[in-house]
């Protein structure tokens, strides 16, 4: 119906666009900005594939309208590291085979980034609890938990 002017800082770059109210942040990122690391599966909040950071906190990009995010700072997987270097969490996923098809991975990486910023030395139980909002249909989660433990030591925590 109506179009709305929004300004959102995405991965450090200010983006001003005119968007319909119904456009979700996930579709804004994927369709308008071509940032396709943010995946969409369920589109109703249960799977976590669309997880991004909004003002530093994880949120479901499929459950947030772009107009609601006006004035916010959004970080997607693309913005987590600079250039083509793998960050410690991505490296840990690679080292520990934390992914198979990889569809769920961007959401997991952002969830884990926030988890380790909050709590650099989580116990195994805390890791499992912290991953509860992200679904993976391939790995059975064991390798993802191991990847988090690896990321803890790569980031200099642990021990």
């Amino acid at each position: 119906m109506s179009d709305h002017a929004v300004t959102i800082r995405v991965n450090g770059v200010e983006r001003s666009e005119s968007v319909p109210a119904r456009l979700t942040l996930a579709d804004f990122l994927r369709e308008r900005l071509d940032l396709t690391a943010t995946h969409l599966a369920c589109e109703h909040g249960v799977c976590g594939a669309c997880t991004v950071l909004v003002d530093g906190e994880t949120a479901r990009a499929c459950l947030l309208l772009t107009v609601q995010a006006d004035g916010s700072e959004v970080t997607t997987l693309e913005g987590l590291t600079e250039g083509d270097e793998l960050g410690p969490i991505e490296q840990a996923f690679w080292a520990k085979h934390g992914m198979q098809c990889g569809f769920c991975t961007p959401g997991f990486v952002l969830t884990i980034a926030e988890m380790l910023d909050d709590n650099p030395n989580p116990t195994r139980e805390e890791i499992i609890e912290g991953l509860g909002g992200n679904l993976c249909r391939c790995t059975g989660y064991v390798k993802i938990v191991e990847a988090v433990e690896e990321a803890v030591s790569l980031r200099g925590g642990g021990g």
Binding site: V54, E57, T58, L63, L64, G133
Partner: peptide, 9 residues
């Protein structure tokens, strides 16, 4: 209540 990603919003 849900997950941290839900409670943030």
């Amino acid at each position: 209540v849900g997950h941290p990603q839900i409670r943030s919003r």
